[in-house]
């Protein structure tokens, strides 16, 4: 079980979503604390999406895109990697550990890698503890 830590996984519909489906179909075990958000490409994920996820109470964020050189939109996965790096810096500035966000590259058939990444993030979050922001301070 994944405990109380919430993980938001932004998954590219061309790779990570298929990997997540496959993990379910072949009945692989992975923690149940992950919420998959389907995106048309990892390049669609913006730093603001990542920050908002934390504001809304996520403890960790995974951005999952296609393998290097295999992006259907050519550079979506490399852009996503840069944005994840930027999000790490922004989070650190706000006093939140940058290790809570991670970029993952995988292919549609890599169900085991999907499960492994979610498990690793869950373990990492157990060490870091929950984020201090809960039930979203985000008021507008």
């Amino acid at each position: 079980m994944g405990g109380n830590n919430k993980i938001v996984a932004f998954c590219c519909e061309n790779s990570a979503c298929a990997a997540a489906d496959r993990a379910g179909k072949i009945r692989l075990y992975y923690p149940d604390n992950v919420r998959v958000i389907r995106v048309p490409c990892a390049g669609r994920v913006d730093v603001l999406h990542i920050l908002k996820a934390f504001e809304k109470g996520a403890d960790g964020v995974l951005v999952m895109g296609c393998q290097e050189e295999a992006c259907r939109h050519l550079t979506g996965n490399t852009r996503a990697r840069e944005r994840v790096k930027y999000a790490e810096i922004l989070l650190k500035e706000s006093g939140i550990d940058g290790e809570r966000v991670r970029m993952v590259n995988l292919a549609p058939e890599m169900a085991h890698k999907f499960a492994q990444e979610v498990s690793e993030m869950t373990e990492r979050l157990k060490g870091l503890g929950p984020t201090p922001i809960k039930n979203g301070g985000p008021q507008r």
């Binding site: 603001l48 504001e55 922004l90 006093g95 301070g137």
Partner: peptide, 26 residues
């Protein structure tokens, strides 16, 4: 507009972490 969104989000996270409430409009 984008930098406004980022700063706003960062401030809410930073204030929220310290247990303070900050209402922002952008």
């Amino acid at each position: 507009e984008k930098e406004v969104g980022i700063l706003s989000s960062q401030l809410r996270l930073a204030f929220g972490k310290d247990g303070n409430e900050l209402l922002t409009s952008e």
